[in-house]
């Protein structure tokens, strides 16, 4: 394997604005996002591939897709 340094996309939740409705959980194809204790959604950074489905679905638009060096 070569040392491919890519930029990985990840979903990120503005937890202060999250209403914990769970719309993101329903559309995530990898079960990489959960609503924790009814307070806010949390992304499992290990699973998330940054497809953006949750961001598109979020009614409060508090999920953004961020790029980070892998």
């Amino acid at each position: 394997m070569g040392a491919a340094v890519g930029r990985r996309r990840r979903a990120s939740v503005d937890q202060g604005g999250c209403v914990a409705c769970g719309c993101c959980v329903k559309v995530c194809p990898l079960s990489a996002i959960q609503v924790v204790k009814g307070i806010t959604a949390q992304v499992d950074k290990g699973r998330c591939v940054g497809c953006g489905k949750c961001a598109k679905e979020c009614p409060a638009s508090v999920i953004t897709i961020e790029e980070a060096t892998a």
């Binding site: 209403v19 719309c23 204790k37 009814g38 307070i39 009614p59 409060a60 638009s61």
Partner: peptide, 27 residues
Amino acid sequence: LFKPRSWCVYCPMGTMTQLICRTRNGK
């Protein structure tokens, strides 16, 4: 006007249950 479940953003029951969860979990 906005996204399909925009109601969830200001739903009083949703706000209230989130408040209860915050209080219950000390947040």
